[in-house]
Amino acid sequence: MGEMIDVGDVGLWVERRGTGPDVLLIAGLGDTAEAWQSQLDGLADRYRLTAFDNRGAGRTPLPEGPLSVPLMAADAAALLDALEVPAAHVAGFSGGSFIAQELALSRPELVRSLVLMSTCARPDAYFRTMTGFWHWMAERAPSERAMLEAFYLWVYTPRAHADGTVDRIIEEALAFAHPQSVDAFQRQLASFAGHDTLDRLAGITAPTLVLAGELDLATPPRLGRVVAEGIPGAGFEVLPGEAHQPFQEVPDVFNARVDAFWREVGARG
């Protein structure tokens, strides 16, 4: 069971699982703590995992006023402070990886290590055009189902579309009791489209692993490589045959890789 934790002007819905070294999981555009279910289930025997709904997603409200990646990073920092976690392994995917970058820059003492999945440092022309399309697609799609069917073309592999995985995910999304509003989707999207850490990446001091899906259309490997090259000592790996969300499509592969990385970081002390 989750709980609402006050981090200032908003309460974040938080799910915690397991025992061991602390791990903070940061979701991306529109996603909630449930996006990390395979990690909450698969890694709880080794880690104390914390996942949460960013402001404007799921059960976490979206107050009036500007929304930005640094603000969501401040939420993540305030959450760790509220939970009295002195430092955590931080993993973020897509927009969550943007938040993780800002967290590592603004509160480096809280970040024991970084895993950045499906990431970038500065959106390029393709990314800006893509997110602009998503913005009006959310308003003009004939139904929520149609919106998800279109949106997930950028998110999941052709394999997942063919084998029924995407159909199952759509049904789960439609049945979810706390759907994201169009306004919240667009405001989150605008904040992620404005993300820019390119000239500040050298300031990230945490051990970092950047992962990219070979078939990722939204944040292709070329964008992740730029992030890895900008962070001192960062590792970079491409997952063959995978797209934007391997942690959902091939969770055993993803879990094994991040577990090995976190163990390496732990061994270094």
Rank of each mutant, 00 (worst) to 15 (best):
A190M: 04
A125F: 07
A74G: 13
W13D: 03
A87W: 01
R222H: 13
I170R: 11
T219W: 07
M130S: 12
Q37D: 11
Y156C: 08
T197K: 01
F133P: 02
Q101P: 01
L43F: 03
W13V: 01
P246T: 12
W136T: 15
G11Y: 06
F247E: 15
D45I: 02
D196R: 06
R225L: 13
A146R: 15
V238L: 14
I204H: 13
S97R: 00
V258G: 04
F192A: 10
L211P: 05
R187C: 04
F247A: 15
G266R: 14
D9L: 10
P108M: 05
D252W: 15
R140E: 14
G56N: 07
D124A: 10
P179G: 04
V253Q: 15
P63R: 07
E34R: 11
V258Y: 03
A202E: 15
T165C: 07
V227T: 11
R112H: 05
V238D: 11
Q188P: 00
A206P: 06
L209R: 08
L211E: 11
Q248L: 15
T50F: 06
S143F: 08
A33F: 06
D196V: 08
T32F: 05
A146T: 14
I99Y: 00
W134M: 14
E109C: 08
I169E: 06
N54P: 10
P70A: 02
Q188Y: 00
A162E: 10
T50D: 05
L223V: 10
V14I: 01
E102Q: 10
W13L: 03
S97W: 00
L29H: 12
I169P: 00
L148D: 03
F247G: 13
W262Y: 14
G18K: 05
Q188I: 00
T165S: 14
L80R: 11
P21D: 07
Q186N: 09
D22C: 06
F176N: 10
T157W: 07
P21V: 06
A162W: 06
A141K: 14
R122W: 01
L105C: 07
M130E: 14
S191G: 06
G194W: 00
S68K: 02
P61I: 02
P207L: 11
C120Y: 11
L174M: 05
D183Q: 02
G20N: 02
T119D: 09
D6H: 12
V155L: 10
P66H: 07
A202Y: 12
R159H: 08
L67H: 03
R128M: 06
E139T: 14
P63T: 09
L80G: 13
A202L: 12
V10S: 05
L116V: 05
A51C: 02
L189H: 00
G92F: 00
P220T: 08
A202V: 12
D124C: 11
E144H: 12
V182G: 01
Q248Y: 12
G164M: 08
D216M: 08
R200Y: 11
S106T: 12
L201C: 09
F151L: 13
E34S: 13
P61E: 05
A173W: 04
T205N: 13
P179V: 03
S143H: 08
E102N: 04
A184R: 02
